[in-house]
Nucleic acid binder design. Structure first.
Lengths: 340, 340
DNA sequence: AGAATAAAATGTAACGTTTCAGAGCTGCCG
DNA sequence: CGGCAGCTCTGAAACGTTACATTTTATTCT
């Protein structure tokens, strides 16, 4: 069933049918009605491949890194999809694994689809170095700062991770915590964790203390399972901790469970802070203190910018969107000075 | 940059280049090397649209219903993607909203892509009635029973929801709970909730008791927010409940938070059971007793069957995959007879 | 009424691939 | 030495659309 069949059946020509289907002007009401009637009757659906081949245009594409486990990305993705749908754009989603080869393959597949543009969500951009070399199409990075990463010509929107992490540690200090452990990604490839940890350093230094990465930092992936295990390891090597800052809510949730299993009460015995502000953090018991990244604004700015870049040529922008430290039940003040 | 350019640059013809690119025989080693060299040098990527137009073949497609919030679907989806990737299949994912119009539109878009087949995850199939009428392509339903739904010619794999729900209530009764409330989807459109509730009825009846839907059932969507609110409503109208069975883990998690906010201790004051077995249920505090659906097997059977259906014509199958009642901390035995 | 203009419909050339029938070469056999 | 396989390779015809240059038909103006 092709447009040709519709033309034959309706008695009109190919061109006319095409114009009817695409709501072009210069077609009589009579022709429109007749054509649409045949289309309805035959249940015809235009072939997107042929269309896109001809038009040399295609869907915007979002690529998720470490995606399927980071619930923040799910949140953002959902919003992105809704926004693109509202502008009548199709979306092609590819979840990327940790494995570098797979990333290359997925990226290649995505490029073969000839998308209008790319939207990247998070991730260890190292894997993309090679893939990006020849990328001409519009491209926006979310939750990562493109300039920092060495891609100054790409636009990006992210939370000011260093500032947020600094605020977290400042807050913990204000609550009287001195022995703080941190859980996060592999610092050599995960620039996001790296940036957050820089904020930690900054605060620690500002407060006249020291942070020993080998002792106080424990790397893990962004999942509850890994958070659980990493917290256990951290606790074992540094038993006296009064607070744990997890560089991701899913890690924090896993850590809380590990703590509970070891008989710690949260926040009475130990305080926990997360990062991201996923919905689960609001419903956990106890409610998790966390840095809320603005998924809505991230998605909105990203989609809008990408859409603009597709239509006009624009200089790249690197913006931070505001974050909020959500002070909830999982942090306790040791000296009673600072309260929830 | 097209195959034509490669042909010109390499000095070979279109056909030869195409054969090299697709690893066809009948091409000399010399030609292969030369062509590949040019391809590498130019960074050429074949145009997927043209290819698929010509080949009349395309990606398998998964469509998610109420998807973005139900974490079980995220789990299954991830596995599905991995499996298809392993067979070298591309995957096109569409998240479907609650809105019937949007569902129609998304389905239409999906069909225009000319996929090899469809894989549906959950959902209120009512919305698809019309969309399915003309569907010729292979199609598999997951977490829903196609035969029950009136699509006997589609294959489907699901958990035996009624049996699982019955086991849950039996267990609750064995623990001495008599006053049980249930939280789940809108029964008039959500067949999955409907089936689970039938299991509840069955157990209640078997145990010589009664279940009053208007009093003991509170409908809500599959999200923590809604679970929280529904639990609050239920508690208000039926204060004496000793146990709550949520027909979805995210609902259960929301409900637990609502309970905690009202000063109930779980499971001391009230027991909670979920359904799905998402990873969060294992890490919540307390750990959630739930029915674990086998995401791995569901994904495996679904993908395999769809792939087979694409290659050969096969009679539809409707199978149940085994479930497990995970007895965890969120349920307490009132009389001490049944323990964790 | 005839010409000029606007509106509607047509025909055809792409878009970038794959495929298939056949055209040159070898080299081997009788 | 003619012929017959095998290999390689070529050229052209699709695949289902859209867009552009035309042609046909209807409308208006002097």
């Amino acid at each position: 069933m092709t447009i040709k069949d519709i033309a034959r059946l309706s008695g009109y020509s190919l061109g006319t049918v095409s114009r009817v289907l695409n709501n072009h002007p210069d077609v009589s009401e009579k022709a429109r009605q007749k054509v649409m009637a045949v289309v309805q009757e035959m249940g015809f659906e235009p072939n997107a491949n042929a269309k896109h081949l001809k038009m040399r245009t295609r869907t915007a594409i979002a690529v998720l890194v470490k995606g399927s486990h980071n619930l923040l990305f799910s949140d953002i993705l959902e919003k992105i999809q809704a926004k693109f749908a509202a502008s009548g754009e199709e979306v092609y989603v590819a979840y990327l694994d940790e494995d570098a080869d797979e990333v290359q393959y997925a990226l290649q597949l995505a490029r073969q689809r000839r998308p209008k543009g790319f939207l990247f969500l998070g991730g260890d951009m190292e894997y993309f170095r090679t893939g990006f070399e020849g990328l001409e199409d519009p491209c926006v990075l979310l939750t990562n700062n493109a300039a920092d990463l060495g891609f100054p010509n790409l636009s990006s929107f992210s939370t000011d991770d260093a500032a947020a992490a600094e605020e977290v540690i400042d807050y913990l200090f204000a609550c009287g915590h001195q022995k703080i452990g941190v859980l996060g990604g592999n610092l050599s490839i995960d620039q996001i964790s790296y940036r957050r940890l820089r904020g930690v350093y900054h605060s620690v230094k500002k407060n006249g203390l020291a942070f020993d990465t080998t002792k106080q930092y424990e790397p893990c992936r962004y999942s509850m399972e890994e958070g659980y295990r990493a917290a256990s390891r951290l606790l074992q090597k540094e038993p006296g901790l009064t607070a744990i800052f997890a560089l991701g809510d899913v890690i924090a949730l896993g850590a809380m469970r590990a703590l509970a299993d070891r008989g710690f009460k949260i926040p009475e015995d130990i305080s926990v802070v997360g990062y991201d502000g996923i919905v689960s953090s609001e419903y956990s018991i106890p409610r998790l203190t966390t840095v809320r990244q603005d998924a809505e604004q991230l998605a909105d700015r990203g989609v809008r910018t990408l859409l603009q870049n597709i239509h006009y040529e624009l200089p790249p922008v690197h913006e931070s969107v505001p974050f909020t430290l959500m002070r909830r039940e999982s942090v306790r003040s040791l000296d009673g000075k600072e309260t929830l």
